[in-house]
Nucleic acid binder design. Structure first.
Lengths: 251, 251
DNA sequence: TAGTTAAATTAGGAATGCCTAAATTCTGGG
DNA sequence: CCCAGAATTTAGGCATTCCTAATTTAACTA
């Protein structure tokens, strides 16, 4: 399973590590909350389900900054009380339980906001990411709870990604990227990548979204896939980039 | 009227001064949007309807920082292109049209958010201020518009304060603070101060809110007021602090 | 094992917003 | 007019996050 270990010792009510407590109060200039959050989120994401060590270089690339800056920041994050990351020189970095808790909380904010913007404020699914990315750092626990209540505690964001629970629990899923799915075996779209709005619009056009049945009929003619979508009679050829933005589960 | 001059040359669609454009893109550290916004908001508020020059000292007091820091920041704001304030050494500071536009935009964000949190997310009116204060700096024009649409373009926040239009127009009102209202003349509550949650809760208990009819029956026994609220038979004695948190209009 | 290359770290510097302490400037009363 | 006091400004510092350039460490190849 995925993040189940965090659920126990960091259960919601008992956990003093939410939001603002983790980040030292801004003194003068900024110890920008965004910054810390973004590092932790990146480590969570790049570490993958196995929570492998993440290299400074890939963090730098992912965050759009220089490796030297990453080194400096990781040293600070590791020196926090409690430490947010475990950092071994030249070897990489992992989240500590405290850091993982914070990263999951921000991820919960992000996905709740996406669902909220989509369901209540008429955002299309290709518009939600940027707005949520900005706001996720600043909403209070109270607002988080009210939004979740208003939505009826949704389990996924509009792209199909699971929303962590308040406790930090995140349901495990055995998703597979579409290009790695075998031909002929029935599948259902479980989630789609949300980083490229134009890709999302293309998916909308094709009727591709979480929950839609799908079957790969033939693979890899110049890396594209011939796919049957839903109950359509016709087949569609998906480009490499489109196909690899789609994750599926067995139907 | 109040801010009518800004409506013309800075009409919504034509105005290139919205949100992010005004604040230089963060280079490394932050040129914190919050900070700039807070200065502009403070100048707007302290300048009053006449937009008088604001003294550095009162800004410092209002923002909870030292006067020396204010001087430094005002010099930077005046040096922006376009300048956000007109700053005369030792004399005080005023908003330029660009600065006023930005201040009004942030004020619009704040009041729209308050209304939204109150009407859609079950916030009580003593809870909305802090959350809105944090989020007002980060919502996009798009979200601002969606929220306004969802609310049906409301004219006031939950405390009765008018919400600036997108164009920057802010309706003028001839509000008077309750302690300055004459005895016996019928009045209606137009707005209440939103900065002290405990005061707001006290008003809730008394049934005091915008739109409620009110009559001052006797004044100033140790600075308190004897007041008849709505259609009540009985009278209530309002403390100085409570009464001066209430603004009224003729009924 | 030695040499080359890639990754990571350190050193030093910029920009920011705030601070304190020491000038400086304005204002009002003799 | 001059001086005391208040308001303001300047000078110098701190903490933050980022940068570039130079160095060190690790990894891989022959």
């Amino acid at each position: 399973m995925f993040f189940e270990t965090v659920a126990g010792p960091f259960a919601a009510a008992a956990c003093p590590l939410l939001s603002s407590n983790l980040v030292p109060p801004k003194k003068h200039g900024p110890y920008t909350t965004e910054s810390v959050d973004d590092y932790l989120k990146a480590i969570l994401e790049l570490g993958g389900p196995q929570e492998e060590q993440v290299a400074g270089n890939s963090l730098a690339h992912h965050l759009g900054i220089r490796a030297a800056s990453v080194t400096g920041m990781l040293q600070k994050l590791a020196a926090q009380k409690p430490p947010l990351v475990k950092y071994e020189k030249h070897r990489g970095v992992r989240l500590t339980p405290a850091g993982k808790m914070r990263a999951l909380e921000v991820l919960r904010h992000h996905r709740l906001l996406e669902r909220f913007l989509h369901d209540f404020l008429d955002y299309s699914w290709d518009e939600v990411h940027d707005e949520a990315e900005r706001l996720e750092h600043f909403i209070s626990e109270k607002l988080e709870d009210r939004i979740a209540a208003k939505l009826g505690d949704p389990e996924t964001d509009p792209h199909g990604h699971p929303i962590p629970e308040r406790s930090g629990a995140l349901p495990a899923r055995q998703e597979v990227l579409l290009p790695r799915w075998a031909c002929g075996i029935p599948a259902v779209v479980s989630s789609v990548s949300d980083h490229d709005p134009s890709l999302l619009r293309e998916m909308t056009r094709l009727g591709l979204k979480p929950g839609v049945a799908i079957t790969v009929e033939a693979g890899t003619r110049n890396a594209s896939l011939l796919v049957r979508i839903g109950d359509r009679a016709d087949r569609v050829r998906l480009s490499q980039s489109l196909a690899s933005g789609i994750s599926v589960l067995p139907r």
